[in-house]
Amino acid sequence: MGEGETLEQRRSLAAPLIFFIIVVFQFATKWLQDLKKGASKTDKEIQLRGEIKQLLKEAASLSQPSTFAQAAKLRRSAAAKEKELANYQAQRSKEVKLSYDWYLKVLFMLKVIIYLVLIFWFWRSPVASVSQQLVQPFGKMLSWKTGGSLNNNVMVGIIPWLILCTRVSKFVCRIIK
């Protein structure tokens, strides 16, 4: 009786714990990707954009034939600033890409290691048990490598649980975005 209780207690804690681990990895990946996208706004870039906008505004205000030369000079100056901004953005994006890509690779490797540890730990034992009526047509798929059903409950295996948790966590990340 003591062994059955510990197995049931381990199974009841395993499913939410695995789900929590996967959600944390998913949110960390999403957070790093968002940082990678949003990291390109710096003070120098904002200043250059402001200068370009100001030069184009001044050039637009000089629309008289007598001030055409001044307007053309301002437009050329704005074009030079745009070129400088493009070069700065290219350099900055390379730096950002290298730094965040390294973090994303480390996170991916950690995720793979954790998944493998979970798979080896729960390979032949069920992670959770779900009522057979609740998962009627999918019971065999969910109980893969765990022995099927017991007491009218489907025993959920680790691989289907990891797939299900990954899909749900990606969906939750998209919704929370």
Rank of each mutant, 00 (worst) to 15 (best):
R11F: 02
E51A: 13
A69N: 13
T42C: 05
L48H: 00
E45S: 06
Q47A: 11
F68H: 08
D34K: 15
Q26V: 10
I52Q: 03
G50I: 01
L48K: 02
R49H: 02
K41C: 04
R10W: 09
A60D: 14
E8I: 11
K36I: 07
I52K: 12
L17S: 13
R10D: 13
G38P: 01
T67W: 01
E58R: 14
S61Q: 12
L74S: 07
G38S: 11
G50T: 07
G38Q: 14
K36D: 05
R10Q: 15
K37D: 07
L13D: 11
K37A: 12
L62R: 13
A15G: 07
K73R: 09
R49I: 02
K57Q: 08
F20C: 12
A28C: 10
P65I: 02
S66M: 11
K57W: 03
K73D: 11
F20H: 09
Q26C: 10
V23I: 12
L13F: 08
A60T: 09
E45K: 04
R76D: 12
W31H: 10
W31M: 11
T67I: 02
A72S: 15
Q9R: 14
F25G: 01
T42A: 05
Q70Y: 00
K41G: 06
P65C: 08
K57G: 06
E45L: 09
D43S: 11
V24P: 01
V24N: 09
L48Q: 06
A39F: 03
A69Y: 05
F68Q: 15
E8L: 14
Q9N: 13
E58H: 11
E58P: 01
L17A: 12
I46T: 11
G50L: 03
A80F: 08
D34P: 01
P16L: 12
R75L: 08
A15I: 06
A78G: 09
S61N: 11
E51C: 01
D43Q: 04
I52W: 07
D43T: 12
F19R: 05
L55M: 15
F20G: 13
K44R: 13
K37L: 08
L74F: 09
V24T: 07
K37V: 08
Q54G: 05
S77A: 15
A59C: 10
F25M: 05
Q70N: 10
Q64E: 15
Q47I: 08
E58M: 10
A60C: 04
D34L: 15
I46V: 14
G50W: 03
I52N: 09
T67G: 00
A15L: 03
Q9Y: 05
K57E: 14
E45G: 03
S12W: 07
I21K: 03
I52S: 06
R10H: 09
L32D: 04
G38F: 05
S40L: 03
